[in-house]
Nucleic acid binder design. Sequence first.
DNA 1: ACTCGAATAT
DNA 2: CATATTCGAG
Length: 246
Amino acid sequence: MREEDSNWFAKWEEELPSPEELIPLTQSLITPDLAIAFDLRNENSGQPQPQTTPPQPNSSAEFAGDEPARTRKRPRLVWTPQLHKRFVEAVAHLGIKSAVPKTIMQLMSVDGLTRENVASHLQKYRLYLNRMQSGGGGGNVGGSDHLFASSPVPSHFLHPTSRQSSENHFIPSFVQISTQQPQSQFLHRQISAVNFSKATDQPLFLARQSQQQPVLRHLHSQVTNYTEDLETGAKTVLTLFPTRND
DNA sequence: ACTCGAATAT
DNA sequence: CATATTCGAG
């Protein structure tokens, strides 16, 4: 079971779009301590950067003095099943009602993913949901919902009957710690510290290594078992995402 | 000023 | 068809 986890992650990693640009979004959330703790070094120590990146309009004259404005033309985002899955998970945790592009995007925490990307996908996803409840339970799978069909639709997505506000049902969070250094323990301590100190009121810091900058987010959460995994491997990923019963 | 979201464009 | 962009609300 654990292998599966690492597998899905590996795949997920490959899916990451836009390797070049980062959304500055959360940088301000990064505390000095964490910044240090997660000290990202892209020393390609063992993990190359595969990225099935779509053709990027990057030829050769791009970096120069010109700065990588994020207002550049990004390649079309391809919603792979993995990406969509993450999307669904995010929506599920936010609650179908309160899930809006910005929040979803933040939860997904996918490098390079924009609010527009999510908005567009969300629009389509909603249509899919409607079309699905209208069509009744009769499983008429039109030939075009393959992507959406690839990820199970949480039950509460379909019934409008109130209830099920779901917000802090589960704690969506994931942490990627990339460290092959003796830092690992130090790292997890940092995380714990942050988590515990603010646990009462909230935030836990989510971290994920990206190209050059760490992306950290805070969510109210109760981290459960990351230490375990952390100790286990040098490079570990733990996801406390859905997992109802596990 | 910002973000949603339906409509529209590519 | 899938994704992007536009643009009028709130």
